[in-house]
């Protein structure tokens, strides 16, 4: 990390505010995600984790504040959102694979149509990624014929195929059973090994503790507490954080 000290963070949020109608979902949120680090967002459902990720990918328009990617403001209305999204990979909770395309076509769609890679090259790279994630034989299958864990790994491959600088993972294991959770989280661990910059919203506290460089606890649209996993999980300062973690422990999830 020290080598990157002078570089701007890959993702930075500055006083971001987002409302839906009357309810304020994010208020005055600041966040910096340095290159090759993993930031984990924790917090109850509805605390604004997903909205934060959707805002970072410009799927939602923020009301106030600014978001920077590699030091450039992306929330400026003059910026072309497609060019921003090209640099960011997103994995959704419900996979969101295209059911009418094979696994291979799902993965090569963006490289071919957006990044204008030749079909052969795109498919080669897709197969290589699939093999790395243990899905080599599934290239010709349709998504609905795969298990949830396999689908989610395909979704990760699809997000990686565009060679993004930043990966946003939105509760990607929430729809999976514990056995399948393992296979997906292993993939994320490997990505961290390889130095991928990631922002992860999750309820898997054990995983968060292990993989995070920075943990942010969101509550009522505010980053209430942030720090290393050791600080946040070991010695939380805020009462709300303590409460949240206590409930998690009671539920047997830490």
């Amino acid at each position: 990390m020290t080598a990157d000290a002078n570089r701007p963070p890959v993702l930075r949020l500055e006083s971001v505010r987002k409302t839906f109608g009357d309810s304020v979902v994010l208020r005055d949120v600041d966040l910096a995600v340095p290159a090759h680090t993993v930031t984990v967002l924790i917090g109850a459902s509805g605390s604004g984790k997903s909205t934060l990720l959707r805002c970072a990918n410009l799927l939602e328009e923020i009301d106030d504040g600014a978001i920077f990617l590699d030091g450039d403001e992306i929330t400026d209305p003059r910026v072309d959102p497609d060019s921003v999204r090209r640099r960011i990979g997103v994995v959704f909770q419900a996979y969101n694979l295209f059911p009418h395309m094979t696994v291979l076509d799902n993965i090569t769609l963006a490289p071919r149509r957006v990044h204008k890679t030749a079909r052969k090259e795109a498919e080669e790279r897709a197969r290589e990624l699939l093999a790395r994630l243990g899905l080599k034989e599934k290239a010709a299958e349709y998504p609905d014929r795969l298990s949830g864990g396999q689908q989610q790994r395909v979704a990760i491959v699809r997000a990686l195929a565009g060679q993004p600088k930043l990966l946003l993972l939105d509760e990607i294991t929430a729809a999976l059973d514990p056995e399948l959770v393992g296979e997906v989280l292993n993939v994320v661990r490997d990505l961290k090994e390889q130095g991928m910059t990631m922002v992860i919203a999750t309820h898997e506290m054990g995983f968060a503790r292990e993989v995070a460089d920075q943990v942010c606890f969101l509550d009522g649209g505010v980053v209430l507490e942030r720090g290393t996993p050791k600080q946040v999980f070991g010695a939380p300062q805020q009462e709300r954080t303590q409460q949240f973690l206590r409930r998690i422990v009671e539920a047997g999830r830490l």
Partner: peptide
């Protein structure tokens, strides 16, 4: 949705950035 501890809603004023953007 959790209810915030302190209601800072009355304190929110659009920033210069937002006004320029709009």
């Amino acid at each position: 949705m959790t209810v915030p501890d302190l209601s800072d809603e009355d304190m929110y004023r659009p920033s210069a950035r937002r006004i320029e953007r709009e």
